[in-house]
């Protein structure tokens, strides 16, 4: 189904305009000297970055809102910036996104019934793996060493030393 996503490489110009509009500060004309940081408030920007790194850009193939250059990602970053700037907490912003885009937007899936296996799975695997390991090691201790017959020993030696006449495969 050819859904037209927002990724419109041909239309990069619009993205430029949007981007410019987003960041347009009251124009301070500097001839030379210190460059102006894009972020008015670096502390806020850091929060925006770290939050949007955990949000999935829905139209992209698999990129976070922080990394993507897609217009929707730019819009969503602006939303995050605006809401955090207005004093909302990280959790409130995440709730805002989830209520509109669903859990899909989160790179860290919330813990709920349907994701219980996802979050507990590694632990279950670990316990299972270690349990199996312990059982195995215990039974090992009691198991007698493998005793090769003299014939087997000779065959193994022949194989290792590469004497094909002796090592001719026994048919199974």
């Amino acid at each position: 189904m050819p859904v037209d996503r927002f990724v419109r490489p041909l239309n990069a110009g619009i993205a430029v305009l949007l981007f410019a509009a987003l960041f347009s500060l009251p124009s301070v004309t500097l001839s030379a000297g210190e460059a102006t940081p894009v972020a008015e408030n670096p502390e806020l920007e850091a929060r925006v970055q770290s939050l949007s790194r955990n949000l999935r850009c829905l139209v992209c193939q698999n990129e976070s809102v922080a990394e993507s250059r897609a217009p929707l990602a730019v819009d969503l970053r602006a939303q995050v910036r605006e809401q955090l700037g207005a004093g909302k907490s990280e959790a409130e912003v995440v709730d805002f996104m989830v209520s509109r885009y669903g859990d899909f937007v989160l790179y860290r899936p919330p813990f709920k019934a349907s994701t219980a296996l996802l979050w507990l799975g590694p632990l279950v695997l670990l316990v299972g793996g270690l349990g199996w390991l312990l059982l195995r090691l215990r039974s090992r201790e009691q198991e007698p060493a493998l005793h090769l017959t003299e014939d087997e020993r000779r065959r193994a030696r022949a194989l290792l030393e590469g004497n094909p006449a002796d090592s001719e495969e026994q048919r199974s």
């Binding site: 859904v3 037209d4 996503r5 927002f6 829905l58 139209v59 217009p71 929707l72 819009d75 969503l76 939303q79 509109r100 885009y101 669903g102």
Partner: peptide
Amino acid sequence: EDGRVGIEYGVYGTP
């Protein structure tokens, strides 16, 4: 124009 209502509706692609 600025896609705000789109975000309110969870729009991520047109149509």
